[in-house]
Simulated assay, not measured.
Amino acid sequence: MRLTLSVWIFIALILTSLSALAKPPNQAQSVAPLEVYSIKVDYGNGQILVEGAGLDPASATATLAGVALTLNPISTDTHLLFDYSTSVAEVVNSPGNYILVITTAGGSFTTSTFIPFGLAYNPPSGDPCPCQGEWDYFSSTASPNGYYGLTPYCSEDNADFVTVQFYDTPVGNYWVSWTSWDSASATGSCAQYIDGPTRTLTTEDQFNACAGYLRNIIQVWGSGGNTCLY
């Protein structure tokens, strides 16, 4: 049976209507690629800070030495904060290199991270200087995990800034302990630059305690004759 022109037109209209009603195919949502710029371990607070781009906290996960880390809810697309639990500290319990894996919808990043001591370590609380825990640890630990017995590479001491630095040439470690105070804003900080977080000082008494601690290191071990880099 031959179809008339009017029938063909009717069929064409039906097909056109069905095509208009059909849903367009789903387009894949664009996901920013994962980029990691730096990784910092805050031993005192039991956290690992990842800085980068496209970090996507909605999909981010991480493991250290194969053990899952817990994503802190304050994480953003540029800063991921992971809390590590006792189960992580049980595995990462001594100095060494451990594999850190970060995964998001934008990709995966794997690196070997040096941990200078077991993550169970926590600086003692209540010290006049909040950096004393780190400084006590590193100044009493021999190379390569500390600078016990080394002579300072350099030191700097003035009214609002004190630093003492050690260059462990055989293993390529550069240890930088420092504290500073800004009288105008009444704020300050201290840090073990290589392997510890920067801690905020809220009073000048804290600064004096930190400065006195570092001045004692200089007095005991002597001061190097080089220009300090930091």
Rank of each mutant, 00 (worst) to 15 (best):
S139P: 06
N45C: 06
Q219F: 15
V31N: 04
S17F: 05
S139Y: 06
Q165S: 15
F109L: 08
F117S: 09
P73S: 12
V176T: 14
G196M: 04
A209Y: 00
Y153N: 14
V67G: 11
R215Q: 13
S30H: 06
D83K: 12
T61M: 11
V101H: 02
S87N: 15
C228S: 13
D205I: 07
K40G: 07
G133W: 07
Q27K: 15
M1H: 13
T141R: 11
A22G: 13
I39N: 00
D157C: 12
G107P: 02
K23P: 04
F10C: 11
I217L: 15
P152N: 12
Q47K: 15
G52W: 03
G225E: 10
F82I: 01
D127W: 04
C154V: 13
P95N: 07
A89T: 14
I74V: 14
A142W: 03
R2F: 12
T16V: 13
V220F: 12
P25H: 12
E51S: 06
R215D: 10
G66T: 11
T76L: 02
G46F: 01
G172K: 01
N145E: 03
G225P: 11
I74A: 10
E134A: 10
P128C: 06
A32C: 01
P24V: 15
L3E: 09
G133I: 13
A209F: 08
P57S: 05
P95Y: 04
S125C: 01
A32T: 09
Y137G: 06
V171Y: 12
C210D: 00
K23C: 11
F82L: 10
L100C: 02
Q29C: 09
N216Y: 11
L18T: 14
E134S: 07
G118H: 05
Q206E: 14
S140P: 03
S87R: 04
V164Y: 08
L5H: 07
Y174V: 08
N97A: 04
I39T: 06
A53K: 05
W221Y: 12
L229M: 09
Y193V: 00
L71H: 04
G212S: 10
A28T: 14
E35F: 05
A32N: 05
G225I: 12
S180G: 13
L201A: 03
D77W: 00
I74C: 02
N122P: 01
S185K: 10
Y147W: 14
E90W: 09
T70S: 15
P128L: 14
K40S: 11
I48G: 02
Q192R: 03
Y230D: 14
Y174N: 13
G212L: 14
L80S: 00
T63V: 13
T200W: 01
L214T: 10
A20E: 05
Y213I: 08
G107R: 02
I115G: 06
S17Q: 08
S75Q: 04
C129N: 10
I194W: 06
G149C: 02
I39P: 03
D56M: 03
S17E: 03
L15K: 04
A184D: 15
C228P: 03
F117M: 09
G188T: 10
P124S: 06
Y167S: 10
S94V: 08
N173A: 09
G96M: 07
Y230F: 11
I218V: 12
A186S: 14
Q47T: 07
R199W: 04
I39G: 00
N97Y: 08
V67E: 12
V162R: 07
P197A: 10
D157Q: 13
